[in-house]
Amino acid sequence: MPIIRVQFFKKDTAKYISHLDLIRTVQRSVRRADIPVEYSKGFNPHSKIAYGPALAVGLSSDGELLDMELKMHIDETEFMERLNVNLPVGLGITAVKYVPDKAPSLTAIINAAEYRITCSVDTAGQNIGQRVEEFFALDSVFIERTDKRGRKKRFNIMPMIVEVKRIEVADGQVIIEVITDTGGKSNLKPTDLVAALERYTGMPFEETDIHRKRLLIRRGEEYFSPLDIYD
């Protein structure tokens, strides 16, 4: 059965919904749009939709992805239009593309993401820009995380930062754009990065706004979009 790969944004009020809420919301939108989605067999049939790495509650994104298995091929533009009018405010599809039936799942291929982090910081009289740059030049910054079994684990976040694309400090605001490890194998939560920055600079970062710009496949020095790899 054909598989369609869908890129969508999640913003405004929709950024406050959890991954589980998102799954339910998309399922119902698909039903309203009368999209011929394939259902699993069994007592509680569910639509065959598989997502990329979950986005934490409170974060916005322009680059979320999902794969949907369809009962039949439908035109890409029609698919987009029909689903878009049935999605709640804050969710919207920006691109779709059919991928091969045997394409590996999004979670199997995505290993990086680009984020834009915007924070309010008291910049007066402080060379905050320099401090942030120093931070990203460090070899090791350890943070502590509690794993699923409740054990505390220390690990170095610096190897998970793949590339720093932009550091901008102006008018009490810091904007950082960064590509980090994302996915099952190695994952850096952007909120952990912000907490580490706060600790290093000794400054509170407030009104933090984290935006995921895109999900990526990184192979060595090169990046690919999961949407384009089969072109």
């Binding site: 009020t13 406050y16 919904i17 959890s18 919301t25 119902r28 509650v57 409170g58 999605l87």
Partner: peptide, 18 residues
């Protein structure tokens, strides 16, 4: 908005449902 990112289930207060 500032409060929403700090509470347990922000969807309770966000509105904007279909």
């Amino acid at each position: 908005e500032g409060l929403l990112s700090r509470v347990e289930k922000p969807a309770r207060y966000a509105g904007g449902e279909y």
